[in-house]
Amino acid sequence: MVSGIGCSSRAPGYVDFNTLHTTHGRALPFATGIKLAKPEMTVIVVTGDGDATAIGGNHLIHAARRNLDLTVVLFNNSTYGMTSGQYSPTTPTGAFGTTAPYGNAEQPFDICNLAEAAGATYVARGTTYHAKVLPNLIEKAISNKGFSLVETITQCPIYFGRMNKIGNSVEMMKWQKEHAVTKKQAETMSPEELADKFIIGELCHKTKPDYCELYDRIIEKAQASIK
């Protein structure tokens, strides 16, 4: 398990895996090195919205583009929680942050759309409230041979919840429950009804050769020409 910097990236300290806690935004390049050196290993990256889509945004799109066989579990709490609540690339427009005391002027990323568009072959979204669904999504992501991303909507009651008057952890999880809809439910809803909702569950699952497989093919081809 590889992580960057932020609240999310403390996770390797709580699991009994081989872990590497790296620098801000760079968990994916470290993981890329690990995967290329030991393609037989299962490599999981835990990261956050600030870590993976701001300072490390470049690495996210390129790891997805390569369809590198990694699983990214991205904790999205819509803020830089560890440094006390500055607005991040996923803070909704108008929401408050310590650097946005009158509301955020910027538009947020839809991380799942971003990952899919960049070339990820498995993309899903879960929440901390839907705790029974999340392990299934992560399990499927790990079994996918290619770049997988599970965006997990998490709560930051200390900063995001407090500054946006959503309430404590329980209230924030209740918010998740009330604003999450499945893909199937979304199909029957109007754009107005969907305006303040987000879709959870499996959002994309494709079959494409992963980077290590393509790399092996090149090696085979190059060696054949030598013989």
């Binding site: 801000h24 300072i55 830089y80 560890m82 440094t83 006390s84 500055q86 310590t98 650097t99 005391p101």
Partner: peptide, 15 residues
């Protein structure tokens, strides 16, 4: 960009 322990400087400045 925020970083502990310097974050406050620019955060206070942003207010």
């Amino acid at each position: 960009y925020p970083i502990t322990p310097a974050t406050e400087i620019v955060q206070i400045f942003s207010t």
